[in-house]
Design a protein around this nucleic acid. Structure first.
Lengths: 252, 252
DNA sequence: TGAGGATACTGGTCAGACCAGTCTGCGAGA
DNA sequence: TCTCGCAGACTGGTCTGACCAGTATCCTCA
């Protein structure tokens, strides 16, 4: 039953890291809420008993993580920010940029997320949430004449409404992030597509079907629709080699 | 068809951000590969024509994003790091810490990820990958007598093998991250549980079943097993109010 | 009462310095 | 000839002190 002695590699702990930890900890424990302010750099330098450069390095790290934001000239000091998926988005974007994941994997992941979101929405959505979906769909219909840019915004809003109805913040945020990255990869292709209007109308029909399935509480159908729709919409942009992995999510 | 003039809020661009961008860009375009080195701070300060503090702030941001790593005394300069899910993990951990998501949502998300991973593994796993799963399962059996710590490690390895067989890096990484966060939240409860051994043996049986389903290419069963197993294992740690959302993923 | 500017702050950047640590290469000893 | 050990030239981490361009505030003056 002897547990072998497992040692962890040690890294020198730098002063600015300790500062980051202290501030993170305070935020995590709710002692520092979004909207509240940190002391000014010069005051923190006194409180932490370090130089201003050290304080600033800590602030840069916190800022890059989206936890705080500094604005020059603001006498109230750096602001604690509410959670934002920006950091997540950046991580995923990075994975894509370094070719750690390809478009096929992204689309597959999105199929997985949206099919689950639809399933859960069909099973848990409240009457108000169903109404919100109605409105979002109407907004899409209205936007179809105002160009792809506007339509895309309305489209995103619809997906957001459904994702929110899934009652799972993680699904909501991840859907948002992955959708954003996918669109970033191919939006230029869509924007230059000759049959834009056809694409929009097709998209409309699909979304109407999804809403119908959600409204009639048919989770299985809503879930399947998400996968089929995404496949129909994106398979053309995915390399032949990656398409089988998308199809693997269709059958069942 | 008039697109309303959409302006974006402007933020002052700071010098260190431009440095971060330049380096990120070089990494994304493959001009700077993992293992390669950045010039020393003093040399970058000359190349970018800024002061060392500015270079250092840029390096801190890159380092907090896991892109580079500095080690004092290393004459080769900061190292470009391979992709690591650490940044993702931190984002998710942060969401959990600020109560943006609860244990229920985490477990639900994990059910979703692992059920998909199992499904895909059943449909795509190669013979080698099946063998690797066999080995991982054997390692678990062997670890059961060596305490929870060791067993848990083997357990993680098994899940990793399955996730890898799904052929989707995003699923693999997210599973890893979410599993880690969940375990971080409740591992102390398990470690102090009186019926540890019973838990481990139950876990073994479940994993054997999963492997069986994957081997016989029964994706639907492998997928369902993941959801059921996770529910059985974790529902007890989830608040009553959140349990229905887990059960919503069980039926079908 | 209202508009104006002085003031005291803020963060962003710079310059130059010291320290502890690591790596390298040279030379002394075997 | 080979090995060991030490000196030096680097590295990053931190500090001090300074300047600048902004912003918020308040106080004065019309």
């Amino acid at each position: 039953m002897g547990v072998p002695p497992r040692f962890e590699p040690v890294r020198p702990v730098r002063a600015y890291e300790r500062i980051v930890e202290q501030i993170e900890d305070r935020v995590y424990r709710g002692l520092l809420a979004p909207g509240e302010r940190l002391p000014s750099e010069r005051e923190m330098m006194a409180q932490f008993a370090v130089s201003r450069s050290t304080v600033r390095e800590a602030l840069r790290v916190l800022e890059s993580g989206g936890l705080v934001q500094s604005r020059p000239g603001d006498p109230r000091g750096p602001e604690i920010m509410p959670f934002s998926p920006a950091a997540l988005r950046k991580s995923v974007t990075r994975m894509v940029q370094v070719d750690e994941v390809g478009l096929g994997e992204l689309v597959q992941f999105r199929m997985l997320l949206e099919s689950s979101a639809n399933l859960l929405a069909a099973r848990m959505a409240s009457a108000e949430e169903l109404d919100a979906m109605d409105e979002a769909l109407a907004a899409m219909t209205a936007a179809i004449d105002r160009g792809y840019e506007e339509f895309s915004r309305a489209d995103v809003a619809f997906h957001d409404t459904v994702a929110r109805a899934s009652r799972n913040t993680l699904i909501e945020v991840c859907s948002d992030v992955v959708r954003g990255v996918v669109l970033g990869l191919i939006s230029h292709k869509i924007a230059h597509s000759p049959d834009q209007r056809e694409l929009m109308e097709q998209s409309m029909r699909h979304h109407a079907e999804v809403l119908d399935a959600v409204r009639s509480r048919d989770g299985a159908r809503a879930s399947r629709l998400a996968r089929e729709t995404l496949y129909a919409y994106y398979a053309g942009y995915v390399s032949e080699a990656e398409r089988p992995m998308l199809r693997a999510l269709l059958e069942e």
